[in-house]
Design a protein around this nucleic acid. Structure first.
Length: 439
RNA sequence: GGAGGUGUCGCCUAGUCCGGUCUAUGGCGCCGCACUGCUAAUGCGGUUUGGGUUUAUCGCCCAUCGCGAGUUCAAAUCUCGCCACCUCCGCCA
């Protein structure tokens, strides 16, 4: 949700943001009208309610006094007075109820519209759709397998050769897009987890293991029930959702809280399974584990002052790069275009790893500055000298297991199908230097 | 899953039986001011959150007693549903 004051002071900013996203500009006009309607309905109710309270305050004492009157004539007079007030109060009560109904309807209409508005884009984000990203930097050099004299195997072939990945049995047990990590594959994930967490704690992030099943409020608050809703698993029987990222439980962690400014920034590294329906991606990435319904991920999440958010965003990106650098994987960083930001992000940087057998870069991390958007929806505020106000939240992938494993296997493979383990990972694999094909 | 109990403005707490000066009591903490060599102590005032009104200050109005409905002229208080926590029982990795 966006600061409602912007609607009154600078609606054109909202219109421009919607335009850049390729979303409805008319929505802002509806919003302006609904905002006016809501305020006037609320004011009408407030006024009537005030009258009702004033009247109510006269009735109580009068009724008390009535009991003490002994003189018959005086009693009748007092009774008449009470009756008159009661009559008045009764008709007022009907009006109050009607005004209250109107006010709450107007308020719900306004809220419903607000929920449709995506975050205001950062004006530095490249404008356009998925293909209109800007490349920020290329890091590392893809290997020249021709020069090395062999054709690279893809990650699935390598994974099966090493006894590390089993998608066939994944499909047998859970259907397509599910997999097992076996033997060295399982050890590799655990090592990656440990490397990620040791880096995260070295930077002062608080390690977290989070719920992966959440209430609708957490899902809605993080903005995943908008355009992204079709990719979310819902447990209908209990009205809960499986999270697609621990961003959801980490953001929700401080919902409804007011955090003292001197505790900020609060930085977390959450570990959880992630579930994605991958609706509408039939036929895409059907081979291997690039696109799966369930995987594990270490996600960074930050709560900070809004004025620090951009610097914090740069910091998250630098930590993502540090991790991928340590794994010696070639990659590029892209500045995601406005049409591809998702509803919550004002700006987003993705890291894309070079995948030799695809001859292209594929997304392995993503870091978003969601400014105050999620904090407003989740009612997370901070308190400093100037009072109480929403804070900013940011998130970034530290290690999404399947895609890191894909990049690792493909980029570090050797002609005989073995895979060299990057130096940084070896301490977490008992000093092992290479994975070799199972006999 | 069953039975019982609890939920009040940062923390603790009064109020709930029996609806109306509850404009929610008191303490702690915190903020401001005063007093005082300094500190401490003391005194006075302030201290939930959100919205509206106001150029702004001051102020005024509305909502908010776990959440939501209901009864009533009027709900912290009565009724119903839900949620969370605690105790006991049952079941369970």
């Amino acid at each position: 949700m966006i600061d409602p004051a912007i609607l009154r002071t600078n609606p054109d900013l909202l219109r421009e943001s919607q335009r850049r996203r390729g979303e409805s500009v008319e929505l802002i006009d509806e919003l302006v009208a609904a905002d006016v309607a809501k305020r006037s309905a609320q004011a009408a109710f407030d006024e009537l309610r005030n009258q009702q309270k004033v009247l109510g305050k006269q009735i109580g004492p009068l009724q008390g006094a009535l009991k003490k009157v002994t003189d018959d004539a005086a009693r009748a007079a007092a009774q008449a007075e009470v009756d008159a007030l009661m009559t008045q109060a009764q008709s007022l009560s009907d009006q109050v109820k009607e005004a209250e109904r109107a006010a709450s309807e107007a308020s719900e209409r306004l809220d419903a519209l607000w929920l449709q508005v995506s975050n205001i884009v950062n004006m530095d984000s490249p404008v356009g759709g998925e293909e209109d990203f800007a490349v920020v930097e290329n890091v590392g050099t893809p290997r020249d397998f021709d020069a090395e004299g062999f054709a690279p195997r893809d990650h699935l072939e390598l994974g099966e050769l090493l006894g590390a990945i089993d998608v066939e049995r994944g499909a047998k047990v859970s259907g397509s897009r599910f997999f097992y990590l076996t033997g060295p594959g399982a050890l590799l994930e655990i090592a990656l987890l440990n490397l990620a967490m040791s880096q995260a704690t070295a930077h002062g992030l608080i390690p977290m293991i989070t719920p992966s099943l959440v209430l609708p409020s957490a899902m809605e608050g993080t903005g995943f029930l908008g355009q992204a809703a079709e990719n979310v698993y819902r447990i209908e029987q209990d009205d809960m959702y499986l999270v697609g990222t621990s961003e959801v439980p980490l953001a929700g962690y401080h919902a409804d809280e007011i955090i003292e400014a001197d505790r900020l920034p609060l930085r977390y590294a959450g570990w959880s399974s992630c579930y994605r329906r991958e609706a509408g991606s039939y036929g895409k990435d059907t081979r291997g584990i690039i696109r799966v319904h369930q995987f594990d991920k270490v996600e960074m999440f930050v709560f900070c002052r809004p004025e620090d958010a951009e610097a914090e965003h740069a910091r998250l990106l630098s930590w993502e790069r540090e991790f991928v650098d340590a794994l010696e994987i070639p990659y590029r960083v892209i500045d995601v275009a406005t049409g591809d930001l998702g509803s919550s992000a004002a700006r987003k940087f993705d890291m894309e790893a070079w995948i030799p057998t695809q001859g292209t870069y594929r997304e392995i991390t993503s870091t978003s500055n969601t400014t105050e958007f999620q904090a407003r929806r989740l009612r997370i505020r901070m308190r400093d000298e100037s009072g109480t106000r929403p804070l900013a939240t940011l998130n970034g992938t530290l290690c999404a297991m399947p895609r890191i494993i894909v990049a690792l296997l493909e980029n570090h493979q050797q002609a005989d199908g073995s895979v060299v383990i990057p130096q940084a990972l070896r301490p977490f694999l008992g000093g092992r230097e290479v994975f070799t094909p199972a006999p």
